[in-house]
Amino acid sequence: MRTDLLLIRGILPLLLIVVVASTLYKYFTAYYGAKYFELDTKSSRRVGVGMITRGEFSLIIAALSAEAVGRYAIPEITETVPAFAVSYVLMMCILGTVLMQFMDR
C-alpha cells in the first residue's frame, strides 16, 4: 500500500484523539459486554484490552479508500485517510498486544 506517512503531520491531533478515544471506547464496550454475560472482573478486563488491536481490515478499508474514483477522488480520501489508517494500525497493533501481555500478569 503506497502511503506517504509524512502526510500525518497535518492530522496529528486527529490521530492522537482517535487513538485515545477509540481505545477507551473499545475497552469499555467490551468490558461491559463481558460483565453483562457475567464474566468476573479480571476476565472482563481481558476482553476489554483484547479487542483494542486493529489490523488487516482497517488497512483493507484504507486500500479501498486510496482507489476512490470520480467525485470521491479527493486528496483527503485517496491520501490522507490511507496515511491515517497505516499510522493508526501501527499504533493500535502495538498498544493492543502490549496491553494484552500486561493483563496476563
Binding site: 482517535v18 486493529r54 482497517s58 478499508i61 493508526y88 494500525v89 497493533c93 493492543g96
Partner: peptide, 14 residues
C-alpha cells in the same frame, strides 16, 4: 471511512 477503520478489530492479531 475513518469510522470503519477505527471500528474493526484485528481477527488475525487477536
Amino acid at each position: 471511512l475513518i469510522g470503519g477503520i477505527v471500528y474493526i478489530s484485528s481477527s488475525a492479531v487477536i
